[in-house]
Amino acid sequence: MAETFEPKIVSFLCNWCSYAGADLAGTSRIEYPQNIRIIRVPCSGRVDPLFVVKAFLDGADGVMVLGCHPGDCHYQQGNYHAQRRYLVMHKLMDFIGVESDRLYIDWVSASEGKRFAEVVTNFTQRVRKIGPLVIIRDPHALEVKLDEVTA
């Protein structure tokens, strides 16, 4: 039974810009895929890299962090810190062998409802193409894999 893989997308949206942009998409009745689950944070700078790691461990196939446009952050510089952390996370993901395209950062303002929908649709499609994230949870299976690699 070949099912089309439907990715699980988690998105951290900041209260002032991207969350409001998502609200505007709703008010404008713009449809986008149902794969996304949204968590509201006060600022994209609140997003701890730990959340990203936990998201993947908890079963997310893709994680999005959306903040205010550079220069427009409600808290002045939170989005710059988010950007910096994202770059480091990206490198970490490459290092550990998880496709870094699964993590995405972008800027959506409170008046960009249509854009929010586009961003969600495009990212969902991208993760759908990459495929499900495989995490080996069984310790025995992990040992086997390690032996293979270190042999």
């Binding site: 439907e6 699980k8 988690v10 149902q34 794969n35 689950r37 968590i39 944070v41 006060p42 609140r46 701890d48 730990l50 959340f51 936990k54 998201a55 908890d58 079963g59 997310a60």
Partner: peptide, 21 residues
Amino acid sequence: LRGFNDMQLLTQLETLLQFSM
């Protein structure tokens, strides 16, 4: 961060990801 602490956000994250499509 009161009201948005790690426990609260991580719990919300974990619960949301229990869904299946």
